[in-house]
Design a protein around this nucleic acid. Sequence first.
DNA 1: CTCGAAGTGCCACCGAGTGACATTTCCTGT
DNA 2: ACAGGAAATGTCACTCGGTGGCACTTCGAG
Lengths: 215, 215
Amino acid sequence: MPRLSEEEVVERSSGDEGKRIGRREARKRATYAALVTVAHRRFHEDGFDATTLDDICAEVGISRRTFFRYFKSKEDLVFPNRAERLERFVQVLTDAPADENPFDTLRRATRQFGPEYMAHRAQLVAQQALIARTPSLRAREAEIDRDWEAVMARAIMARTGTERAAAVRARVIAGACIGVIRATMRHWFTTGGVEDLTQMGEDALDCLERGFALE
Amino acid sequence: MPRLSEEEVVERSSGDEGKRIGRREARKRATYAALVTVAHRRFHEDGFDATTLDDICAEVGISRRTFFRYFKSKEDLVFPNRAERLERFVQVLTDAPADENPFDTLRRATRQFGPEYMAHRAQLVAQQALIARTPSLRAREAEIDRDWEAVMARAIMARTGTERAAAVRARVIAGACIGVIRATMRHWFTTGGVEDLTQMGEDALDCLERGFALE
DNA sequence: CTCGAAGTGCCACCGAGTGACATTTCCTGT
DNA sequence: ACAGGAAATGTCACTCGGTGGCACTTCGAG
């Protein structure tokens, strides 16, 4: 018996460029989406810690054992597209011209991601409120920041080389960038996402590049 | 029966300015110290996750329930003096003259903490290796960084005011500072702690203040 | 239509962490 | 010195996230 409304299965072996989605794959995606949807609702209603995996699994209609074949941990429910977002960021970095300085590259990233965030501001603000009040989610977010910092440092080194001085400089720049970006986003979130995130991001990068010393 | 070699109890009501340590307090401190010592040894021998709280408690001679009256979590065993270190940092911040700029304040902090770190370099490098390979410890470390960033932002705001622009700037500067400090320390750790940490810290702060743009 | 594999459920288990309550241990006031 | 009481500890039972093993169902390919 189907646990959820089964969606139409794309006719198999029909279109040449069709996705060739069978029942199995469709069911998996439906389960994945249901997990994310149900979890987000209950997290926001009852809180992250107060919501049990058994609760979520019962509502979705799967066993807890099966849940862990979709997500490696409870926290991962809150950051579903983590890998994709990182991948897009890496793309921005690798697509950058070889002579572009790191701050300009990040400005381009800001102009790409900023508007997207502002478009989903309500959802993101709520999401961030949940993260901010849940220690284990803050920890997960920090881990994500570390990933971004690492790929950024690697990207800089790809241009400046990996000798001692250059490596230190690359890591320090990456740390500073992630630091100001995270601080900017936290401020944007806590003020309800009403300000211009793109502008704030570019301002922060300006400060980094030109120094905070200007009077 | 004593669980561990009981140390000499300071004669009660002896010296006027004696610490007035009774058996109870002495025993508590001995237990606390034993927990830290035993835990660190086993963490480094067997790894953090492979070491069970039951293992540690058995060796120290207490129940697991009692352990949680000394530490709020297993991770806290690795950061025993977290509160004290933060407190000292706050002191550096609050002791700063009202007209000192944030970077000079941090330079003073660097000159205070840097040499201490270099004095214990072997221990700290081993410690950091453990943290680096243990996700839950990395998470805890990130949380500590957040604390430092928060007190720094607050300290800056105490001087610049809390109006929108000043608040953003304070948070961004704090984020950048923690970012470069963390990056610097990670580099110092991964290179075995042989370089001059104080110098590297001051260099990083110079970059922040004057900007990374200099050719 | 059949065979194999992917997906799932069930069960037992582990380890971290908590609440309740009894028991021991030490400090303090007389 | 001794009694009363508070602090510290132990015991037990429990919750919840997470994992390993194995049987079973379901789907897809030939």
